[in-house]
């Protein structure tokens, strides 16, 4: 049984004219089906307006399907049944793009406690949960600080701590790294990967940066509300044309490897780092020299 299962999901937005009259509608999500297993690292890729953020909000029950259905832990999401919704939001946390606009508390500690406070956990238990969560993101030493004094990367870590304090099964990162500098971005990605491997938390990463997804178990590529392709990183990255159609760019080193593969079938594809490329190049070169 899959952890999250989406069947023929459609989400419609109304198109309005200048006077606010509805003149039509378009499908932000157009007939998407996918299955996500527990403990997986999932990446959903697409350019601006591809519907990936709209999809992310369905995981967290912030939006509801116009057509089709979403099953979480084999329970159908029904917008009329509040118990299911609150239970799902407890299980599936969401990190948003703008670090400033998702921190509610006036201190790091208070913000981390916001979730547990909302679901009515007792004070002593909140303190334990908050301390554990802040230790996990290595922000314990800043617990009394105001979030205004933190860097973007640190704020995103606090946002993750706020979710961890609810003991979630899954974290959805909705372009959570897009406002960070390259260094903080790498660090956050490393941390998220650790969460996935050590704590077995399912990660759903929404992004348009293909370099961030090389560690994912499964990729989904979206364009104009539709699912273009999906599969393992290696499978998807080889579909250069599909990726280009989606308006995305694969890492240069990967593309170069694919091109070399077309020249020499011996050169393998699915190369994501310069180190891998250098090793593969050396291997092919040595092989060729040995033959001669």
């Amino acid at each position: 049984m899959p952890f999250i299962s989406i069947k023929n999901l459609v989400h419609q937005f109304h198109v309005r004219d200048m006077n606010g009259e509805i003149t039509g509608e378009y499908n932000a999500i157009d007939d998407i089906s996918m299955e996500i297993e527990e403990g997986q690292f999932i990446a959903i890729l697409g350019r601006n307006g591809s519907g990936k953020s709209t999809l992310a909000r369905h995981f967290n029950n912030l939006l509801f399907a116009d057509k089709g259905s979403i099953w979480i832990n084999d329970i159908l999401v029904n917008h009329e049944n509040e118990d299911i919704i609150w239970n799902n939001r407890k299980k599936i946390g969401m990190v948003f793009q703008n670090p400033d606009n998702q921190i509610i508390g006036t201190t790091v500690e208070e913000d981390t406690a916001f979730g547990p406070e909302n679901i009515g956990i007792e004070s002593e238990n909140i303190i334990t949960l908050v301390n554990e969560a802040l230790e996990a993101v290595k922000m314990k030493h800043k617990s009394k600080m105001s979030p205004n004094h933190l860097s973007g990367g640190q704020k995103q870590k606090v946002a993750i701590a706020g979710i961890l304090a609810l003991k979630p099964k899954c974290i959805v990162l909705d372009e959570a790294t897009s406002m960070l500098d390259p260094h903080s971005r790498k660090e956050l990605m490393k941390f998220v990967l650790e969460l996935n491997k050590k704590e077995k938390i399912t990660i759903i990463m929404i992004t348009h940066n293909m370099e961030e997804v090389v560690n994912a178990d499964k990729l989904f590529i979206m364009n104009k509300g539709k699912l273009l392709t999906h599969g393992s990183v290696n499978e998807v990255f080889n579909e250069v044309e599909t990726i280009k159609e989606a308006g995305l760019e694969i890492p240069e080193i990967t593309e170069l490897a694919i091109k070399l593969h077309h020249v020499n079938q011996n050169f393998r594809t699915g190369i994501f780092t310069p180190e891998e490329f250098a090793n593969e190049f050396e291997r092919v070169y040595n092989e060729k020299r040995n033959k001669e």
Binding site: L62, W86, F96, N101, I104, P116, N118, S123, I127
Partner: peptide, 21 residues
């Protein structure tokens, strides 16, 4: 944005919240 973030963290009005301290 903040309202979305709060809702995704289980905030709802009229529900008795607890406090850390």
């Amino acid at each position: 944005d903040l309202a979305l973030a709060m809702e995704s963290r289980c905030y709802r009005t009229g529900y008795q919240r607890t406090k850390m301290y």
